[in-house]
Design a protein around this nucleic acid. Structure first.
Length: 185
DNA sequence: CCCTGATTCGC
DNA sequence: GCGAATCAGG
């Protein structure tokens, strides 16, 4: 792959949006994060937060917020639909929580996890990272979210246990015991 | 260990 | 110019 005008433009756009080098590399495809970083330097467009001297620069993102929330919300609904075994899971989520998923730069990325009211045991449902196919690695959960034919198709993306394609949560859903012992008696 | 960007330097 | 290897950091 070479740095065509189009790819450079995309790179510039995404970098400006605050995406990380690896994320941009994933979007572009055919390049590594190193390539992205190298190109960014050559283009001399490092507006990245340098915090030289302590002055903290927080970029304002007032555009597209509503859209992002909508998208995230839709995905939550999809998650909801996908997890029949644990309905009402998404009920506890609100747009604000969902929105945090889409903003890696926001300081507060605290993994707020909704608790199913019917499961006082404290079982939690992880919030998906909503990664695209190219962003998956050996240790990201590959639980699909949404319609594979839709451009919004994503994967859970949370950390997967070693030798498992899914995160701890989705592994439990994916690999259910063939027979459950009903009672001991 | 996972991730981030920064830099170097052979190609 | 390019980007893998490496460095430095959270």
């Amino acid at each position: 792959m070479s740095w065509t005008d189009e790819r450079v433009e995309l790179l510039t756009k995404l970098w400006g949006d605050g995406l990380s080098a690896s994320q941009i590399a994933g979007q572009l495809g055919g390049v590594t994060r190193n390539a992205v970083i190298g190109k960014v330097h050559r283009l001399k467009l490092e507006t990245r937060v340098k915090t030289l001297g302590g002055a903290e620069i927080v970029r304002e993102e007032t555009v597209e917020i509503e859209t992002e929330v909508e998208v995230a919300g839709a995905q939550i609904v999809q998650i909801h639909a996908a997890m029949r075994s644990v309905p009402r899971v998404a009920a506890g989520m609100n747009a604000a929580t969902a929105f945090k998923l889409e903003e890696p730069d926001l300081p507060d990325l605290a993994p707020e996890v909704p608790v199913d009211p019917r499961r006082p045991s404290g079982e939690v449902v992880p919030i998906a990272r909503n990664l695209t196919l190219v962003q998956l690695t050996e240790r990201t959960c590959k639980w699909p979210l949404g319609d594979p034919l839709s451009p919004d198709f994503r994967f859970c993306g949370n950390h997967s246990d070693e030798s498992s394609p899914y995160c701890q949560y989705h592994a439990r859903i994916a690999f259910q015991p063939s027979s459950e012992r009903r009672r001991l008696r």
